[in-house]
Amino acid sequence: MDAPVDPRRSWSLPAPGELARTAEPEPLVTRVLAPNPSPMTLDGTNTYVVGAPGSGQVVVVDPGPDDPAHLAAVTEVLTARDAEVVAVLVTHHHGDHAEAARPWAERFGVAVAAGSGDVAGPGGRVLEDGDTVPLAGTALTVVATPGHTRDHLAFRTETGSVLVGDHVLGRGTSVVTHPEGDVLAYLDSLRRVHRLGPAALYCGHGPELTEDVGAVLEFYAAHRTYREWQLVDALLPGPRTVAELVAHVYAEVPRAVWPAAEQSTRATLAKLSATGQVVRGAGDSWRVA
């Protein structure tokens, strides 16, 4: 089986480390890059300020790390928009997206809205698929996208763009975390986002995707299928441990991301086990059923 080709290879995207600190991909949305670059967060966490121009109201999506410089950059955007924050939204509970949610919400005097009560906190709002977040002049629609994590959400704007958190990244592919992640749920969520026919994807990390968005989503699904094939193929000669599988399947990937690759591998093995293709062997090993 041949590896699927990432359509973004032919796009004119910013190189790693060159993503602008602040950008406005459309009048409704401003992106502010948090200063937390790493192999997992790419250039850093993308925080989004969303609201109708001139309306005086915005929401902050994924405030990211509770960093004073990042808060100052977001505050500059609020001043430029002459807008007040009416809610802090969070796509999922991982700290690089949610750490600042409650502190910033308290500072702005608003509530946190998220997919779990642990993130929303006392007085916060737990969001479900199909809910709306109203703003002056516009609204966001909540799209449940579990898979990367159980509580993962996306937010669709009235212009058709989707803020996808870590469900889709601007570069590379997303991790399906283990044990909370679920590959079957992740694939279903990919299909759900694809059916929306998004005009653009605003990712939790990396550049925004505004060209052939459908092709990216199809590549993501094909990539997951390819990883399944690689694991089964690697197990055909005999049992292997998860560490051996990661070293084999991700040999060309920097070792810094192998811990994340191990999570995706374990999540994929759980899916293959559920469909009867592989079984657990002795210790941390797996074999073909």
Rank of each mutant, 00 (worst) to 15 (best):
E106R: 13
R107I: 08
R107C: 09
R107S: 15
G109Q: 06
V110N: 11
V110L: 09
A111K: 10
A111I: 08
V112H: 04
V112I: 11
A113I: 08
A113V: 12
A114W: 00
G115L: 01
S116G: 04
G117D: 14
G117Q: 14
G117S: 15
D118G: 11
D118I: 01
V119W: 00
V119I: 12
G121N: 13
P122A: 12
P122I: 05
G123K: 07
V126G: 01
V126Y: 00
L127R: 04
E128F: 06
E128I: 04
E128H: 14
D129G: 04
D131M: 12
T132I: 12
T132K: 08
V133R: 06
V133C: 08
V133I: 15
V133Q: 08
V133H: 07
V133S: 06
L135H: 09
G137W: 11
G137R: 09
G137F: 07
T138N: 11
T138I: 13
L140M: 08
V143Y: 04
V143T: 14
A144F: 02
A144W: 02
A144M: 05
A144Q: 07
T145V: 15
T145R: 01
G147Y: 04
H148Y: 13
T149D: 01
R150W: 07
R150F: 03
H152C: 03
H152D: 13
H152A: 02
L153P: 02
L153I: 03
R156V: 14
T157F: 04
E158C: 07
E158G: 06
G160R: 05
G160M: 10
G160W: 10
S161I: 07
S161K: 02
S161A: 15
V162S: 00
V162D: 03
L163Q: 02
L163M: 12
V164E: 11
G165A: 09
G165P: 02
G165N: 12
D166M: 11
H167G: 13
H167E: 14
H167P: 07
H167T: 15
V168D: 06
L169R: 09
L169E: 04
L169A: 05
L169I: 12
G170S: 07
